[in-house]
Simulated scan of single mutants.
Amino acid sequence: MTTKFRGRKLAARIGSALAALALVGTGAAALAQNWGATIVESDNGHRIGNPKAKTKLVEFMSYTCSHCADFAREGDAAIKLGYLPKGDVSYEIRHLLRDPFDLTAALLTHCGDPKKFAGNHNAIMLSQDAWFEKGRKTTRAQQARWQFGSNGARRQAIASDLGFYELMENRGYSRAELDRCLTDEAKANALAEASQADVEKYGLQGTPSFVMNGTLLDGVHNWAALRPVLDKRR
Rank of each mutant, 00 (worst) to 15 (best):
M168L: 13
L97G: 10
L108E: 04
E59Y: 09
L57K: 08
A53F: 13
D129H: 12
A157C: 05
F71W: 14
K54T: 14
R180L: 11
H46E: 09
L81R: 13
A176V: 11
E133V: 05
K86S: 13
I93F: 07
L162K: 08
Y173H: 06
Q156Y: 09
Q156H: 00
V89R: 06
K56G: 04
I48G: 10
D113A: 08
L126G: 04
G163N: 13
I124C: 03
Q128Y: 13
I158F: 06
A153H: 10
H110A: 12
D76T: 07
L81K: 14
S90D: 02
F164P: 01
A105P: 00
A118G: 06
Q142E: 14
L167N: 10
F101Y: 15
G172L: 02
L178P: 01
I124R: 05
N151A: 12
E166D: 15
P114H: 06
I48M: 14
M61A: 14
Y63S: 05
G112P: 00
A72N: 01
A53V: 08
G163K: 14
N50F: 09
R98M: 10
F148Q: 15
K134G: 03
A159V: 00
V89P: 08
T139C: 10
K52A: 15
S174W: 12
S62W: 01
F117C: 06
G82P: 03
A53S: 05
D43Q: 03
F101L: 14
H95R: 03
F60I: 05
A53Y: 08
N122S: 15
F148M: 12
A157H: 11
N120R: 06
D179H: 03
F71G: 07
K134I: 00
I93P: 01
S66R: 07
S174I: 12
Q142N: 12
E169G: 06
L167D: 02
Q156L: 11
R175S: 08
K115P: 04
I48Q: 15
R94A: 09
Y63K: 03
H121N: 09
I48S: 11
D70E: 14
L178G: 04
A123Q: 08
R136L: 13
Y63W: 08
L84N: 07
N50T: 01
S174T: 15
I124P: 03
D161L: 07
A72V: 03
K52H: 11
K86M: 00
D88P: 03
P51G: 00
R136K: 15
T55H: 01
S66K: 07
H95T: 01
L126S: 09
L96K: 11
R94V: 08
D179K: 09
L178C: 07
F148T: 15
L84E: 05
W146D: 06
D179E: 13
